[in-house]
Design a protein around this nucleic acid. Structure first.
Lengths: 347, 347
DNA sequence: CTGTTAGCGCATTCAC
DNA sequence: GTGAATGCGCTAACAG
């Protein structure tokens, strides 16, 4: 029997007789044969791998995004090649390069570049490997992520509706698109309510550093004219801020209202159950993966697709100043965390 | 100029003149040439990829292990191929198979098999690809993980030293090695103190399901002879137990002491700051990765290596019954969480 | 130092 | 239905 007959049988091609196929399969099993996907990829000029590049897998946000991605891609027969960039642009570039030279079928990237970056994505597009940016939005690329301006507006609107009147903002890591978007949303919300934006109430911190949030909060509390609420750009920041507020003797939510972003799994268990805006990270992962799979299959260039996931307000203790909370909330959907439940039951 | 000269220049072989090399490099850059690692792998019969198989990346424990692994492997020029098994043995087997047929240089596996499993690992060994099991320990394999019996002993000893006298245990997911090890440690500790082990005080839950822990705790609280402390097999479980205890009106740590395992990043921020046993997940990842890299390089078969990471007791409010806490703790090291700091400063 | 040759395991094409 | 031939991009071994 010739070599090509064997391969044909194994790949299940139609023009092979049942008899030969059975024979081949039996022999293959007996010999412990395993098709070599490397060799196959060399011929096909493409692997069944998808590269995913994130700043820090230890952050639950990205861990959950990756979980969502993995679910979709593994169902479609792809495996994930994972790179951690530690929020470092140079490592990011190296990772992308390495993934390209491994001939991944596509790329998912949560980039650490400043919002302005353009050339990187233009160049990458020239490489011909489809890619989708996630979480951190840039112009003229495929993108899946949360609508950060909306996040900022929802959080700030909520605090206003609760009756807070001097609302501060502790931002995320400077210059990142989500940070900028949330600041914009925060300002928009205030302006719509005809409140003035006060720059001294906007303080920088880092997304995943509770300590940075604590010192930001301490600065706010030492202000002559203290805020009565704080919109924090992440749950980590909110937890840091909460900690600092309590330590300095403030009551939450009475003297200071706090709301975060990300709906961290343990947000409801912290000292004061944390209000938050859920970004639906699992959804982000799933949608990003299926968009990428479409791009891989269809190779259509029908313009850049921008998929914005609707965030969802989750109100708990930390921002519940008024008891009117429930009635005044109708403008935003406020349900549980359906995404996690979905993930759990999916398998 | 011949093809092989070009390759030699690009790979930086010594026997190429500077002139040619420069020429080649210039041309390569101009043409946007990128070496094809697929083709290289086909010749070398091995990729620069390492497969990592985990039950659930959304659990911070595994996310942190993977982070530790990634750090080591990417420094050594390897990329991670990540598979999520959802604690499902069949998916695990498929993942391992797929990784082998991709010719990974090595495998890191946190297996969902019951403790008894043997054949799987014998068979895998026959494949010739080096692999290291992580977190979940099995006989006759390379292994890196926490010493779970020690974890159980440390937690239980600590509760005893605090003066708790009727100590319950909410276990992890049944039949998994860490679950079994921690139960054993718990029993050992009680026996050494000449307390009797009471089976009605041992209740099953799942590592990552707060809800399962809540109902376990409720069962314990409805016992005629209630426990005065609970050793929980994970921080998620501890948080669920804590929640249930508080809801039923118990005070923690006065009426019920609680300790978990895993030193979750937010454990210190929950309603009652959570005592825990740190498993050093980042260390586990790093050590496992470097052991695997050794195996890949040396291919020595000098017996199975068993690396047990020393857990570390972290005492916070939830188990601090006596004020003698600090003095009576000398038997176990109790410091901060150095591993996370290390990770942060590594880059 | 540089060029030639053979072959890694598979898929495709075209004979038979 | 089946078999033989060719090449994917690279490396290794050797010849010049």
């Amino acid at each position: 029997m010739s070599i090509s007959t064997v391969y044909a049988a194994i790949r299940g091609r139609a023009d092979i007789s049942q008899a030969t196929r059975k024979l081949v399969m039996a022999k293959a099993r007996e010999l412990g044969y395993r098709p070599d996907s490397i060799a196959r990829s060399l011929v096909n000029r493409q692997t069944q791998n998808i590269g995913i590049v994130v700043p820090d897998l230890a952050r639950s946000f990205f861990a959950e995004v990756v979980t969502g991605v993995e679910q979709q891609t593994s169902d479609a027969g792809y495996t994930l090649l994972l790179c951690n960039t530690h929020e470092n642009r140079e490592l990011e570039a190296r990772a992308i390069n390495s993934l390209l030279s491994q001939r991944v079928a596509g790329l998912l990237i949560a980039s650490s570049h400043d919002r302005g970056a353009r050339k990187v994505w233009r160049d990458l597009e020239g490489q011909g490997t489809p890619f989708v940016l996630i979480d951190r939005r840039f112009a003229k690329t495929h993108f899946v992520g949360c609508d950060d301006r909306l996040v900022g507006r929802m959080a700030t609107d909520h605090l206003l509706q609760q009756g807070y009147r001097r609302i501060a903002h502790i931002t995320g890591t400077p210059n990142l698109p989500p940070t900028i978007g949330r600041i914009e949303g925060y300002k928009m919300s205030l302006e719509r309510s005809r409140m003035k934006v006060c720059e001294e109430l906007i303080i920088e911190a880092h997304f995943h550093e509770e300590a940075s949030a604590m010192s930001a909060m301490n600065k706010l509390l030492s202000l002559e004219h203290k805020p009565d609420a704080v919109f924090c750009a992440s749950d980590s920041i909110a937890i840091g801020a909460l900690q600092a507020a309590l330590k300095s003797g403030c009551t939450v939510p009475q003297e200071i209202g706090i709301i975060g972003v990300g709906n961290h799994r343990y947000g409801e268990y912290v000292r004061v159950p944390l209000s938050t805006v859920d970004q639906k990270q699992i959804d982000i992962g799933e949608k990003a993966a299926s968009l990428l799979l479409d791009l891989i299959r269809e190779r259509k260039d029908s313009g850049h697709r921008f998929i914005l996931i609707e965030p969802e307000l989750v109100v708990r203790e930390s921002s519940r100043k008024s008891n009117l909370a429930n009635s005044s909330l109708k403008s935003w959907k406020t349900t549980g965390c359906g995404q996690r439940r979905k993930l759990a039951t999916n398998r």
